[in-house]
């Protein structure tokens, strides 16, 4: 049986549309216009025990809403979901003792008190035995290198330190399922890296089932084998990370090192030239035409070197997000046409 089973899950909100100005505000008291926002549109998903799954998608895609539904914070409009056999929004205490949700944008620790005190309260709420509590806390604070900061008021910690404390708090009761909503948001590269390393180690040790949303491709590349891409409240892709490029990128990047740099301009006939630093030229060529085009180039030019690469993952995903968000809108043109720079 899967740890997480989602079937036709749907969540829509009614949002009040407020117009600008005083008169509109007064009118709003009597007559209101609402808009239905379908945040999650009938998604299906299964996650097995011990999987580390990444949720990718542009802002407003429905990732966080999905995590909130799975953790029982909000009730769905329709559809079913089971996590560890429980219906999340019934909010069974038995279920709530077995998972955790960490949100990078919100903090659950008491702002004015040292993290230690919040942890103690957690121990009581989750009814963790003192010995086990102490062992888990020691292990977590050592792994995250925050043991010395336990007695410091949370408001005096740096963002990175605070995030580590949030993780500690979430993991004290050794949850079997962990939902991470942008845990590295706003952190510097070193702090991000530390949290990634910690998560990878922790997941390998404990075999915790983890769902992660993040905007940092590095997080995802470092941690997850399986990637679910959401956009407009729907799941657009659910497969391996490597598969994303095959699926969504129609081009490859070809770099050639010409023997005679003066011929660089002539390469424009063979593909979209991304950059020319004679004698090195970078070209963007459609996937289907790649072998034909390459043999033509090899025929007509004398080359010192040639390399064929996939475009960077970030660019592929950014392109895909742009396509999705422009779909259906009047202005489908990209306001900032930029060339792919690798």
């Amino acid at each position: 049986m899967s740890v997480i089973e989602i079937e036709a899950l749907e969540k829509s909100y009614r949002v009040y549309q407020k117009k600008e100005g005083l008169w509109a505000s007064v009118r709003g008291l009597f007559h209101r216009e609402y808009r239905d926002v379908r945040a999650v549109r009938g998604i299906d998903l299964q996650v097995e025990a011990g999987e580390f799954v990444a949720f990718l998608g542009p802002n407003g895609a429905g990732k966080t809403t999905t995590l909130k539904l799975l953790s029982g914070v909000i009730n769905p409009t329709s559809g079913k979901a089971r996590v560890l056999g429980f219906v999340p929004w019934n909010r069974d205490n038995d279920y709530r003792r077995r998972f955790a949700l960490v949100m990078g944008q919100k903090n659950q620790l008491w702002w004015d008190l040292p993290a230690q005190e919040s942890f103690r309260l957690h121990q009581q709420i989750y009814r963790i035995e003192t010995k086990q509590f102490q062992d888990t806390l020691d292990e977590l604070t050592d792994l995250l290198a925050v043991r010395d900061l336990l007695g410091q008021p949370v408001r005096e910690l740096s963002l990175g330190e605070r995030m580590k404390m949030e993780l500690c708090a979430a993991l004290l009761h050794s949850p079997e399922v962990l939902f991470l909503d942008e845990p590295t948001i706003g952190l510097d590269v070193v702090a991000q890296h530390n949290i990634q390393r910690f998560l990878r180690y922790y997941q390998e040790e404990r075999k915790t089932t983890i769902l992660l949303t993040s905007h940092y491709m590095k997080d995802i590349a470092a941690l997850c084998k399986r990637v679910v891409i959401m956009a407009d409240g729907e799941i657009k892709y659910d497969d391996s990370l490597a598969g994303i490029v095959d699926r969504f990128s129609s081009h490859k990047i070809v770099t050639v090192l010409l023997n005679d740099g003066t011929q660089a301009e002539k390469l424009r006939d063979y593909g979209e030239v991304l950059s020319v630093e004679a004698p090195r030229v970078r070209l963007r060529i459609e996937r289907e035409r790649i072998s034909a085009t390459l043999s033509l180039i090899l025929d007509r030019f004398l080359l010192d070197d040639v390399a064929v690469e996939d475009p960077p993952l970030e660019d592929v995903i950014a392109d895909f997000f742009t396509q999705v968000s422009n779909k259906g809108s009047d202005d489908a043109s990209d306001p900032f046409p930029t060339e792919v720079q690798a």
């Binding site: 914070v73 909010r91 205490n93 955790a100 919100k106 659950q108 989750y126």
Partner: peptide
């Protein structure tokens, strides 16, 4: 939206 955290705890939310 910070009620989220209260709803996650395995304890009666009203009590908490």
């Amino acid at each position: 939206g910070n009620l989220d955290f209260a709803l996650l705890k395995p304890i009666d939310t009203q009590f908490l």
